[in-house]
Design a protein around this nucleic acid. Sequence first.
DNA 1: ATGAAAAATGACTGACGCGTCATTCATATA
DNA 2: TATATGAATGACGCGTCAGTCATTTTTCAT
Lengths: 204, 204
Amino acid sequence: MIERQERTKKQLLNAAIDLFEAVGFQKTRISDIVARAGVAQGTFYLYYRSKEEIFLDVIKEFTTLFASFLEDASDLFAGDSFDEVRRNVLDFNHRLIELYTANGKTARILFREGASQGGPFKSVFHGIYTQFIEIVRNRLEQNRATGHVTFEDAETEASFLIGLFDRSLFYFMDVKKHVDVEALSRRMTDFIMGGLSKHIPKSR
Amino acid sequence: MIERQERTKKQLLNAAIDLFEAVGFQKTRISDIVARAGVAQGTFYLYYRSKEEIFLDVIKEFTTLFASFLEDASDLFAGDSFDEVRRNVLDFNHRLIELYTANGKTARILFREGASQGGPFKSVFHGIYTQFIEIVRNRLEQNRATGHVTFEDAETEASFLIGLFDRSLFYFMDVKKHVDVEALSRRMTDFIMGGLSKHIPKSR
DNA sequence: ATGAAAAATGACTGACGCGTCATTCATATA
DNA sequence: TATATGAATGACGCGTCAGTCATTTTTCAT
């Protein structure tokens, strides 16, 4: 019965997601996963060889989506006018926030565990992190000539941006328990385009 | 001999700092700490009751310094002119970066472990994190009337700022292995005051 | 020099959690 | 109803590591 296998595997995966998110990778025991999935200890090993392996399965979907999101970001900072540049930044922010919120648990698992030192996912996290920096840096440099954005060294500004995205999203998801996608993407855009200055026109 | 005790305790503490920073709290075993400190297993328990206890000792100095730094930040965003506001922001950034770099290892330990889910320090981290947000939010609101900074809701902008500080500092400390305090504080200030816009005058 | 107090030692213990495997159970097919 | 298949079970073995404690070493006052 192939459907039974699929059901069991999904139960294990969902249990792992819940537990990794709630108590973290390190503290989650295989015995916790199987207990929550409602299967026996041995059953786990019919589907995964280790905790590391189920972790990689947990984050696989999100990392794939994230990678293709980055590949889609060719318009970031592009535009013939300040307004067009801003619209593209807004669009980027909006899609990024939607991606995060639509995958809240796995996004949190990946970024939380990736930042810390213990896990087996250090390299996975590092990979997508540097990919992000690289894309932002690249888009900044590509569009420097338009004169609508200015910066000294794109890598530094890219690190500012990723920090801004990352921490503020988790602040709203973790502390506020709710993200208003429209409002947050608009205000991120305003901040990126003009900082705290009142001299730059705001969106809308 | 009181000095011998002090020396032993310092050896344990330094070993713990090195190991927490290099491999993380979870992966560090007490046996590793005592091996690196050059003392026996039992000696550890003469000074600390658990790994949690030595961790709290490791981060104590930095958290104390951080708390008093925040209490000193009364000038943040204050000023009668755009330039004065900017100078105060620059000063804040400069001091913050110096604090981080002067306490590189413990700062990294605290922020890395604090963000992840496993540790016993979740509450310590959460405490200083919310304190930071609160100070920035408060300073923004206090100085809204000057008209030199503008924002919708100070808490959101505060979360942008802490993200910007946090991730970019660790990017330079971890990836670049070096932080140019002058340059980074100046560019952070530029970004905070004017984003990527070319319309806002830059520092210096 | 001496011995009592303090400090350090490291072998030992027990708990815990991963992964295995001999066995049971459910379902499909004859 | 009987048989075959393979999914699921859960007790157990084994390694790891935190924490203990009887013993040894060091310190220092007399």
